[in-house]
């Protein structure tokens, strides 16, 4: 019984989330990874993967094209499930594969059991839903940061994808890669520090604090709308969903749309001058105070602890 995972990559590197997909897939059966960029093959041996299907066409990676590959694999190999990372593109690939194979689909799963039961956290974490796809193949999109990666090394067998892919109907005119910077990627970071309207546009102290923790920097929509931070850093309903070990909300009131993107973080800290800010309702540790004194003091304390 096999499970197919789609290798997620960014900027020439296999994304951490691929290791998570492999870890979940291994709970169910043999793990077959589908890889578009052959150059990344050596990186896959870090994870528990039994077989790799190489498509050898790194450029044919639009949702429509990837879905053609995955649905042909479903037809040939009858896997129990296809697992992808629950990103914007991952969900579109899942959606199209579900249509092509007439399979049930679940997105934004945060856990997957050996009997294919998924766990989702909905309405900003207020409800936990356990569900299961009924069709013979389940298409499941899983959020990153959902499981500790099984780092059992493997030397997967290699197979080449032989089907044909018809070109998708959209033309990509240009791509401006997200600035990598020196900070971890928002959705993969174990610590996220986010700033809101309370920063009044000065993210400096917050960035220094984030760097002392090795954290990613996020922002509320008030901060991205004001142009203080890029839209790609927005956390929330219409931004990114993050689930780090620690989320620090600085000068953020905690509107329901913001909470929808961070409420399931394992530990939440809030710094806000307003003792009645709703963010305190979900914070494990809250400081009622001015971020411009609290945050620099915290940064200094962390730095003092490091040799």
């Amino acid at each position: 019984m096999s499970v197919v995972i789609l290798v997620d990559e960014f900027d020439g590197k296999v994304a951490r989330s691929t290791g998570e997909l492999a870890t979940f897939a291994a709970r169910i059966g043999d793990v077959t990874a589908v890889l578009f960029d052959e150059n990344l093959l050596p990186q896959l041996s870090e994870f528990c993967i039994d077989k790799v299907i190489v498509v050898s066409d790194a450029n044919r990676n639009s949702p429509a094209e990837v879905a053609q590959v995955l649905s042909q694999i479903v037809k040939e190999k009858s896997p129990k499930a296809i697992l992808v990372t629950s990103t914007i593109t991952g969900k579109e690939i899942a959606a199209r594969t579900a249509i092509r194979t007439n399979s049930g689909i679940i997105t934004d799963a945060i856990d997957l059991a050996s009997d294919l039961t998924t766990t989702q956290s909905i309405f900003g974490g207020a409800l936990i839903v356990k569900a299961r796809v009924q069709s013979s193949c389940a298409i499941i999109a899983i959020r990153s940061n959902s499981v500790d990666i099984d780092v059992t090394k493997s030397s997967p067998g290699i197979e080449r994808f032989s089907g044909s892919i018809s070109e998708s109907l959209e033309r990509v005119l240009s791509v401006e890669m997200a600035a990598k910077g020196n900070r971890p990627e928002l959705t993969e970071a174990t610590i996220v520090v986010s700033g809101g309207a309370g920063t009044k546009g000065d993210f400096g102290p917050l960035e220094e604090f984030a760097d002392s923790l090795g954290a990613a920097v996020g922002a509320s929509r008030a901060a991205t709308d004001a142009g203080w931070y890029p839209h790609s850093s927005q956390v929330g309903q219409t931004g990114k969903t993050v689930r780090p070990q620690l989320y620090v909300a600085v000068g953020i009131s905690g509107a329901i749309q913001h909470r929808a993107g961070m409420q399931t973080s394992k530990l939440i800290i809030a710094v806000n001058t307003d003792a009645d800010a709703p963010i305190f309702d979900i914070a494990d540790f809250g400081v009622v105070g001015d971020l411009f004194s609290v945050i620099p003091q915290a940064t200094a304390a962390i730095k003092a602890k490091k040799p």
Partner: peptide, 28 residues
């Protein structure tokens, strides 16, 4: 529908967090 919901569980209420007021030592 191809998917069946088996269970819906309200999140266990979060134990009430700690809230302090900064009087000059909040960062520490």
């Amino acid at each position: 529908p191809w998917t069946a919901v088996n269970d819906v569980i309200p999140r266990p209420p979060k134990s009430k967090g700690i809230k302090i007021v900064d009087t000059g030592n909040g960062g520490n």
